[in-house]
Design a protein around this nucleic acid. Structure first.
Length: 644
DNA sequence: GTAGGGTTAG
């Protein structure tokens, strides 16, 4: 018997998937060993914790069939459920265990259930558990105490977290680290600094917590300072910096830290690779991204879901939807809701709205449950493809079938859906009857729609609302002025401009980036400061001449915030960064190579027209990523069908 | 036979 359970143990350790797990279970069942609590407990632990995800349901069924589960089995399933999508189930199981008095509750039961309460963000449950722990005399237990500190930190109650910590008889370094984390989590940077200062021991982890804490508090300079000051660094320290800077939108810094990591000979890990790939995605740096893809492959990270998702997103956001699709199809194991959502967004951004919807159906069929963000991406797909009815259906389905309450972002998608399709009145009525008060983004979306469809009256009304909610936003003024300009109301354009000057509101400077020979070149409208921009201007002049003569081009000046002479307006449109970037690409890239541009603002109508003409006259494919989507220009047409 | 603290994609 003993030899048999050892055999089971070693077999189980080799199980990495639910399928092999089921085979072992069949074997165990055949030999009758599955009635042995030790063997069964191991089996459960493997399903619920080691393999988890889709094996967790299997673990629940196993548990239900075992006649009298012991404390270990309860604890194991609680632990698995605590880390699942629905940690609430762990709380239910704990209450079941307690109510039935079937088995004694121990420190493990408390620790795992507290984790579940923390993961639910349920302070009420957490406090109840705290009281029960007091009754059981477990509050002084160092493990339970540490979990309590983490739970209170997670729920935003730094006072309670510190109180529990202060009452711990002998806090060890892990407890100190927990209270340090809690301070940062609750935004109490000063408290964290005080705790860090009074720690009797600082190990590597404490330093990593401080670095990550500064990053999350958006104190990037302090994070850097702590990072360089720490006595020893490991791969987590490096990935904290890379991920942190990538998430804060500082992709240049993220690249810098990744390069430094490589120079220092530190092996990149799953997190640092995901982080640097995310920086590539933001920057649209596909050349560097490709190199990283090779590295990922060579270093054996292709089995990791987060790295795959980051790769997919990198290809998608740098304009290569086909590579994104390939990464998706080749992805190992079960795809997560993140993988599906990224793919749906990728297709939608590139103008394949209908296919994006098909992917959403595929996701549902594969048993992956869509979450709120998945619905954002499918609604985005509908609105950008003009599929109003489908969008409305998904909006209802989200609530009725999946029980997801729409958040403000979902309402924003609906406004976009109606607005883009020209149903401006419907969009306006929709905003007016929202159950939550609309934010500036929702109104701005409507203003954007007014700008597309040239509705001056509604635009003015919407801008009124925006002036109350977010008076300093330059983009809103620009949008309104575009509406006036398109209607030829130059006096109103001038008035907007004057009011911007009076209120000292500055336009967000537009920039466009192009990668040539693994170097990112950035172009800003009107910048004539260096050799690179001179080269771009030179080429652009040549291009525009060719377009006027051979392409029948006439500049569109509606999108320019100007009240001056027509020639000047033309000159200003002429200077937009994306035109310079394309010109630079045509000058420097090998003939026939696709030109990829990343822009921080939305592409203007004139640039859009010019791109279409260039793609025809120069027989060149151009992909522009603007703030909201991709435009793929080929043979004089754009993948957005002029609908953006 | 189980734990507690640090980095991970949309």
């Amino acid at each position: 018997m003993n030899t048999c359970s050892h055999l089971c143990s070693s077999l189980l350790n080799k199980c990495k998937t639910l399928k092999t797990m089921k085979q072992v279970h069949a074997f165990v069942h055949k030999t009758g060993l599955d009635t042995d609590p030790l063997v069964f407990g191991k089996l459960l632990l493997h399903c619920a914790v080691t393999i988890s995800s889709d094996a967790l349901d299997y673990a629940r069924r196993l548990f239900l069939h075992f006649p009298y589960p012991d404390t270990f089995m309860y604890n194991t399933l609680i632990r698995g459920l605590a880390d699942s999508d629905n940690p609430h189930n762990a709380l239910l199981l704990f209450h079941d265990m307690r109510r039935k008095y079937v088995r004694p509750i121990d420190s493990f039961s408390f620790a795992f259930t507290l984790k579940a309460a923390a993961n639910c963000g349920s302070l009420r449950e957490g406090m109840q558990l705290h009281c029960q722990g007091l009754l059981h005399g477990l509050h002084t237990h160092v493990f339970v105490g540490t979990t309590l500190v983490s739970m209170y930190g997670e729920c935003g109650c730094i006072g309670l977290a510190r109180k529990v910590f202060d009452e711990m008889p002998e806090p060890n370094v892990v407890a100190w680290n927990a209270v340090l984390t809690a301070c940062f989590k609750c935004g109490d940077v000063e408290g964290a600094e005080e705790v860090f200062g009074s720690m009797p021991w600082k190990d590597l982890t404490s330093w990593n917590i401080v670095v990550a804490g500064y990053v999350k508090a958006d104190e990037l300079e302090l994070a850097k300072e702590a990072f360089w000051r720490m006595p020893v660094k490991d791969d987590v320290s490096w990935s904290t910096m890379i991920v942190g800077f990538a998430q804060s939108g500082c992709f240049d810094e993220a690249f810098g830290f990744f390069g430094e990591l490589q120079r220092k000979g530190v092996r990149p890990n799953e997190a640092s690779l995901s982080g640097v790939l995310s920086a590539c995605a933001q920057a649209g740096a596909v050349e560097f991204g490709r190199i990283l893809h090779g590295l990922v492959e060579k270093a054996g990270f292709l089995s990791m879901i987060s790295v795959n998702n980051a790769l997919l997103d990198m290809y998608s956001k740098s304009g290569n939807v086909e590579m994104a699709r390939l990464v998706f199809e080749r992805m190992p194991e079960r795809k997560s809701v993140v993988s599906w959502t990224s793919m749906i967004a990728a297709l939608a951004m590139h103008g394949y709205g209908k296919e994006a919807i098909q992917f959403f159906c595929r996701m549902e069929a594969s048993g992956v449950r869509p979450d709120g963000i998945a619905f954002i991406s499918v609604l985005y797909a509908c609105s950008h493809a003009g599929l109003v009815n489908e969008g409305c259906e998904y909006f209802s389905k989200m609530r009725d079938l999946y029980g997801i309450e729409p958040a403000i972002d979902h309402y924003g998608c609906m406004v976009d859906l109606y607005g883009r399709a020209g149903k401006l009145q419907k969009a306006y009525d929709f905003v007016c009857q929202l159950p939550i008060s609309p934010n500036a983004i929702v109104w701005r979306t409507l203003l954007g729609a007014c700008s597309i469809h040239g509705n001056v009256e509604l635009a003015e009304q919407v801008k009124e609302m925006l002036s109350k909610l977010d008076p300093d936003n330059a983009g809103d003024h620009v949008l309104l002025s575009n509406v006036y300009a398109a209607a030829g109301k130059w006096k109103d354009v001038a008035a907007v401009r004057r009011s911007m000057a009076d209120q000292k509101i500055k336009k967000t400077p537009g920039w466009s980036v192009i990668e040539v020979g693994k170097v990112m070149y950035r172009f800003v409208a009107g910048d004539k400061s260096n050799k690179i921009t001179e080269e771009a201007y030179e080429k652009l002049r040549e291009i525009m001449l060719k377009l006027r003569v051979g392409g029948g081009y006439l500049p569109e000046v509606g999108s320019v915030l100007h009240d001056i002479e027509v020639e000047d307006k033309e000159d200003s449109v002429f200077m937009h960064g994306e035109k310079l970037a394309v010109a630079f690409g045509l000058a420097r890239l090998p003939e026939g190579r696709m030109i990829r541009i990343v822009k921080n603002l939305r592409v203007c109508r004139d640039c859009h027209t010019v791109m279409k003409l260039i793609s025809k006259v120069y027989r060149s494919e151009i992909v522009v990523r603007d703030r909201s989507r991709f435009h793929s220009f080929k043979d004089g047409c754009c993948s957005c069908n002029d609908y953006w």
